[in-house]
Nucleic acid binder design. Structure first.
Lengths: 341, 341
DNA sequence: CTGTTAGCGCATTCAG
DNA sequence: CTGAATGCGCTAACAG
């Protein structure tokens, strides 16, 4: 079904149909005829051909590292909110933390094309920088600092420092604080958060002892393995601070599993077992991100609330400003945090 | 940057460049020149203009009701796996459970266009059926049964029935089984799962008593409110079975909160409080979906494992079969389940 | 108000 | 092997 066919059937020119579709001048009479034909055929204009002409898609692409994450869904919720209120649609591309795929989806969006791109929380490689510098469509980066694009990021260092103090206060006498971090390629979560954490500990007169640090992926499973390794190898772990709440969930699982292994005689339903385990566990876990699911089922651990939804909102606004008003002045925006104990 | 400019700069025709890009006949000499110019300019062909010509995008659109869900992310992981292995990319559209948005994104994908669409788990309205019937691009539906498109769905009735038996076995003498379901507009989760559950109870000589049923949205928060209402209004609730693990997480939160309210004198850190609460709580919660996060931090509740990733894989394969091989025969596929206790 | 015309950037005939 | 020409479906100028 093309605009031409519709035009023929309605006995008008294709331009008239186009105008009808886009609110230009059409006499009421022709409007009627066109409407009739469109209703009858169920015609839908090709968005793509339109885009080829107009260079506008009313569409923005969002690249995310994974789909199943509360923090990311909060960001996208914020983005979607402002986008849909301003007549834009949002397309998501999930990269599964694969930098190669990330670039590939960025290019897809660029050449698709969309009007703008939001890139969220990930490691920024040379290829990324290259893309940001050369991209034909405006990009804003959310969750990481970069000087190659408008960006919105969180005060990860400050949050880490605050949590460091909390951990120091939580640790038992002759106990140790342990930390499960992520790759330092991630400047926000891997570097700022951990460095802040160490600074916070230090300011409270504590520190991360040798051997009490682990690296983890951004998954629960990886957090589980890291925590279990910690528990098996190091004595007197009193606090396990994790770089994300997801990792913290894995750590909690590990503590449950470890205690269960130590006390194999306890049996019965999992409720009973869990009671017993918790009763005899004095290890505290902390996280970052204020995951609501975790809070709900565990009653909550010390964590940090970041304004993820806000960063999505601001990010989308920034992007639309450059798309619609051609705003040129680069912007860096740093968002604060809130300690949740 | 257009193909024309590249052609000029390389001193060849645009057709030669096109052939170079798509692996047609080009002399080695011209290949060199073209390559040089492309490398120098960083030229990227417009995917859109190509699509306008070729009608192929190597792209499939996936419509999901929400982003932050383990089950959905498992489906998309399966889809992405087969797609990327066959040279396709995947675009996601999240509709936030809004049927209107769902249609709007379906239409976007249709006219964008993508080569195929996967629609996952949602209520299917008349508008949906209309779209499925008239869509120019192939669609497969995952997670719901429909006769208007190829579909892959799960044995929700069987799973419900199995869980009904589990609940019947769990319930204490003179205790009651309660059920928190979802809208019956959702034929899979709202109807099949609940009807199966009732059948399972019945076959074990139990039933859902008047007043022990609630409706919830697909969110933890909504599950929390439903469960709290249940606890406040009904005596002797012994088992709370929930239509999804997410709702179950909310129910667990509600039980914690309810007990806490009953025993306000208990204080101290949340660990202590939680111990006490669990010790004195004899209410069991069950779910559906085998959420790993929930399992990790609680030690696990009775639930059902569906082959979500498998359904994603099969769905994508089905779709590619019709895209690439023009497979015409309609397919309905029903996937089994596994009880997790 | 309306129809005709000329491309948007590309892939594909079809002669050379 | 190569380039000139055509058109994918649509919108924007333009002349009626």
């Amino acid at each position: 079904m093309t605009i031409k066919e519709i035009a023929q059937m309605a006995g008008v020119s294709s331009a008239a149909v186009s105008r009808y579709l886009n609110g230009g001048y059409v006499s009421d009479e022709k409007k009627e005829q066109i409407k009739k034909v469109i209703d009858a055929t169920g015609y839908q204009p090709s968005a793509q051909a339109r885009m080829l002409r107009t260079k506008r898609a009313c569409l923005v692409g969002v690249v995310v590292p994974k789909i199943n994450s509360e923090s990311i869904s909060r960001v996208t919720a914020g983005i979607e909110q402002v986008l849909s209120s301003r007549g834009y649609q949002m397309l998501l591309a999930s990269t599964d933390n694969d930098p190669h795929k990330e670039i590939s989806y960025l290019k897809l969006f660029e050449s698709y094309p969309v009007d703008g791109i939001i890139l969220t929380g990930t490691v920024i490689t040379g290829e990324h920088r290259k893309f940001l510098k050369e991209s034909k469509v405006p990009v804003v980066v959310v969750g990481q600092y970069t000087k190659y694009a408008n960006c919105i990021y969180h005060d990860d260092y400050g949050a880490g420092k605050a949590m460091g103090k909390v951990a120091a206060a939580l640790v038992k006498e002759d106990g140790h604080v342990a930390y499960i971090g992520v790759t330092r390629d991630d400047k926000a979560v891997g570097v700022a958060r951990e460095d802040g954490f160490r600074a916070g500990l230090k300011s409270a007169g504590a520190e991360l002892a040798e051997g009490y640090v682990r690296k983890s992926e951004f998954t629960m499973d990886s957090g589980y393995r890291a925590a279990l390794d910690l528990l098996e190898k190091e004595r007197d772990v009193s606090v396990i601070s994790c770089a994300t709440d997801t990792i913290a969930a894995g750590a909690i699982e590990a503590i449950l599993a470890y205690r269960k292994a130590q006390i194999p005689s306890v049996s019965g339903n999992s409720g009973t077992r869990m009671q017993y385990i918790l009763e005899n566990s004095d290890i505290r876990v902390t996280g970052f991100g204020d995951n609501q699911f975790l809070k709900a089922v565990t009653g909550g651990i010390p964590t940090v609330h970041f304004g993820y939804k806000t960063s999505g909102i601001r990010g989308a606004e920034l992007l639309l400003d450059v798309i619609e008003r051609g705003e040129q002045i680069p912007i860096e925006m740093k968002l604060g945090f809130q300690l949740v104990e």
